[in-house]
Structures are given as structure tokens and as C-alpha cells.
Amino acid sequence: MDFPQPLTRGQLIQRYKRFLADIVLEDGTEITAHCPNPGAMLGLNMPGLPVWVSRSPDPKRKLAHTLELVEVDGGLVGINTMHPNRLVAEALAHDVIPELTGYASHRREVNYGVASRVDFLLEAPDRPRCWLEIKNCHLRRTGTLAEFPDCVAARSTKHLRELEAMVAEGDRAVALFVVQRTDCDTFSACHDLDPAFARGLEAAAQVGVEVLVYACDITPSEVRIARAMTWAR
């Protein structure tokens, strides 16, 4: 996924009200940017961190800038939770994820379960349907371990139950975690921040829901799904 325009570097002043971030750009201009991330952003919301923002040419937008990347320990972290579905769509189109190749169609936002919509439904004439849920991961607290979630994620736990139901019906179901970091090589559910989700992920895997984890390559000009990661259960 290429950013449509070059990103601008700045420094985080504060992130507040979940979706707002005050930033001072390198030229000294202070802006308020949209922060497209409903999570806690632990370790990524500290004043003074270097950040990268995009700018929309749409004059109707209330906030022209969007917070895209945060620099931590010399590495880039993608915080935009809207990007993983776009990244996966691109990866599916180019057969980047071997476990998900061979499907004739990739439909998005298909209704299923109880008032839910799956991120992708993969279909082919000669194989079971594949229900694919995407989760964005950007939390790292120790070493090279990526964790999800960074706060209580009841909706994500509900999605695991929906995937289990699809497996029970004879379909395939996959929970795919997209790690928008360049400094992690293993993944774990975050037991202390959301024990219900951690238990739910293990339970889902035990009944046949597949768990995939892929890391990204990230630069100020592009983000790409790049490589598989190990799930440390």
C-alpha cells in the first residue's frame, strides 16, 4: 500500500479524546490531526515521539491531517487501524499470504453471524468458503513480542465466536493479525489486558479457527505485508 502523497514528519504533543492528536511539524507549524485508532496506543502516545502524518486534499474534511506512523526505538509503527484491510486486500490480490491463495473471489464486508460483517469472504468452486477476520496489532512491551489487544476488545472476542460457528458449519475460518511494526518476530494474545480475548483465541484455535500472524515492512512512503510471524501460545 503506497501512501498517495509523501508523509510529513513531526513530533507528538498529545493524543486525546482517542481520535485527536496535536502535533508540531518540523517547520514549526502546530496542527491537530485525526488519530484513526480507537485503542489505548500503549507506548505510542507519549509526548515528544516522532510521528508521520498524511494530508488529504479534500477541502470538506474537518481535519486535513491524519496520524499514520509513530517512531519508537528507531523503528516505524503503523497506528492507522483502517490500513490492515487494505493491506490484506493487496496481499490477497498478489498471493503474498500462501495460506490464503487459490480462491477465485475475495468479497469484503459480508454479513454473517449475529449482526456481524466479516472482513473478507474467500470463495472458490472446489473448496469450502473461508471467513477471514483481520485484526490490527501494534503493541510491543517487551523484547520482540507483539501483543493484541492493547485494551479490552469485546467486539474482537465476539468475532472469534462467529468464526467458530462458521467452522461448525463446515467452512474454513481464519483470524489474521496484521502487525504494523518492524521490530517483532513473535505474537501473543495479551492475557493481562484482556484475559477474555486471550482465552477466546485459544478456544477458537482448538475448534479449528486458524490463526495467522503477518508482519509488515514500513517506510514513510509505503506499508506492505511482508512475512509470517510465530504465534507464541
Rank of each mutant, 00 (worst) to 15 (best):
K17M: 14
V51C: 13
H83S: 11
A175P: 05
L7C: 03
M229W: 06
R155K: 13
E68N: 08
L92P: 06
R107F: 08
G75I: 04
L25S: 01
L49W: 09
V110Q: 10
G43I: 09
V110L: 11
V110I: 12
E147L: 12
F3P: 02
F187L: 08
L145N: 02
T219V: 10
L100M: 02
D126L: 07
H94E: 04
S56I: 08
R161A: 15
S54A: 15
A173G: 01
L12A: 02
A89M: 06
P4L: 11
L201M: 11
L132N: 09
H65K: 03
P128I: 00
A205Q: 14
L193N: 10
L49K: 14
V24G: 05
P59H: 01
A205F: 01
E162N: 11
R181E: 04
M82E: 08
A115M: 13
D119S: 12
V24P: 00
H34N: 05
L160N: 09
N111Y: 12
I218S: 09
L67V: 00
D95W: 07
C216I: 10
P149I: 07
M166Q: 15
R129T: 07
D126Y: 06
P47R: 01
R224D: 02
L122D: 05
L193G: 03
G208E: 08
M229C: 10
D73F: 02
H106N: 07
A124V: 04
R161C: 15
T182Q: 15
T182P: 11
C216M: 04
I134Q: 00
G39C: 10
T101L: 02
S116G: 13
L12D: 05
D171Q: 15
E210T: 00
H83V: 10
V223F: 07
V110R: 09
R127N: 04
R199P: 03
T219A: 07
T32K: 09
R181M: 05
Q14H: 11
V167Y: 11
N80L: 03
T101M: 01
G28N: 07
V118G: 11
E164C: 12
R55M: 12
C184R: 04
F187H: 01
V178L: 07
L201F: 06
G48A: 09
R86G: 06
T182N: 08
D27C: 02
G48W: 12
L67I: 00
Q180P: 02
L92G: 05
L176P: 05
T157Y: 09
L121G: 04
R155M: 14
